[in-house]
Design a protein around this nucleic acid. Structure first.
Lengths: 222, 222
DNA sequence: GTCTATAGTGAGATAGAC
DNA sequence: GTCTATCTCACTATAGAC
């Protein structure tokens, strides 16, 4: 069952680590070939070229995320609970492989490089992102309509959620300096989950007294 | 007074735009030279090499941020108000030049490329980041001690703040697709500021009844 | 499916004239 | 301070033997 990795899968695994660390242009096929133990030319038998290889790597990472969070969206739990489980699943997925967050954050920048000659896999990646974002916004909207979330912009809240999760696990030395511990230690991951959920519970909950005219935010206590 | 730009400043301006769009390895000196109207070799008279040029560009962007937010830290307003002004100043700085957020987010990744031969300017950049983070955490800690913020981790809150601002303005097509409007339009920038401040007011405020044993978070309303 | 060999291009950097 | 010319090296990709 733990079948030895095919050459293709091995290439993808090694390439994911390298692309996450140095980015698309920063990784050479020579380096990738050496790291896999293959010759440089063998890579072209598995992939049409560097661009396609890169897009397959990114799409594969997005599919892992998608698979991890899909059960949350299919759940029929109330919106508040679903939102918390979404954050938990997102954090779990990003924490499972330390390369994922960096790879995806970099991909956000480098995707425009392929505007000229977009490999077919680039469309798959974009579709997954669009689908995830749409469902996240729908969940937020549903919570507002149900009266359990305050009337925050679902677009901006989605952006904040992405930034707070993806950026955090991509922040490397800067983030570790702030936390004072390894980003991917079990302790730091659990903390991240708890802190984000607490921020959302306090920050997104509908006010206790739903006075219709109460549009302003509460002032600070002191 | 609007003295014509020196060659050095012109190079830095053009380089900042290019590095923000395509990253360190993605920009060639030939391209940069053509864009400035200079010959390739002339660049080496102003900078020791590509690495130094890049680090000067990043440090300059960080100094703009620093200058924009410094007044906030020097203020003696109460912590809640200072935090809001910090978010406002950060958003203003990142919104002023659309290249800044992308440049800095990319720099977070590429800084480890210079681990072997670190140009002197790299240390300046790191020092500014460290100083900003330290003061941000101190402000959060002060608010907690004063009883105006709930006991959230200042480290994780700082990470969230950075991600929610820097990532947002770096998110390019993805972010614009979510917002449904240009990221840097006056409307979108004002929205971002208001949404972040609202999230912090609700999400960070100390609970109304400070019962000492109340460590758990409130459940959702429904 | 993997290899060697190589084509063809462009990179960063240097030398030295003006 | 800017230029032309050139060095050296690495890159993506291809051709073709095994």
């Amino acid at each position: 069952m733990p079948q030895p990795l095919s050459s293709r899968d091995k290439i993808l695994d090694v390439a994911e680590a390298l692309f996450a660390r140095r980015g698309y242009t920063g990784v050479g096929l020579r380096e990738l070939a050496d790291a896999t133990g293959l010759g440089k030319s063998s890579l072209f038998h598995h992939f049409r070229g560097k661009a396609e290889l890169y897009c397959v790597v990114v799409a594969r990472a997005l599919e892992r995320i998608e698979a991890g969070v899909a059960p949350v969206f299919e759940s029929d739990a109330p919106p508040g609970e679903r939102l918390e489980r979404l954050v938990g699943a997102l954090v779990d997925q990003l924490a499972e492989q330390p390369t994922t967050a960096r790879l995806l954050l970099r991909a956000l920048f480098e995707e425009e490089e392929f505007a000229a000659d977009p490999p077919a896999e680039a469309a798959r990646a974009e579709a997954i992102v669009a689908s995830l974002v749409t469902r996240m916004q729908a969940l937020l909207h549903e919570g507002v309509e149900a009266g359990v979330f305050r009337r925050a912009s679902s677009a901006h809240t989605a952006q904040t959620l992405i930034g707070a999760t993806v950026y955090h696990f991509a922040s490397a030395e800067v983030g570790e300096g702030i936390l004072g511990k390894p980003l991917f230690s079990a302790e730091a991951v659990a903390e991240r989950k708890a802190e984000l959920i607490a921020l959302l519970r306090h920050g997104l909950a509908a006010p206790a007294s739903p006075s219709p005219q109460h549009r302003g935010d509460p002032p600070w206590r002191s």
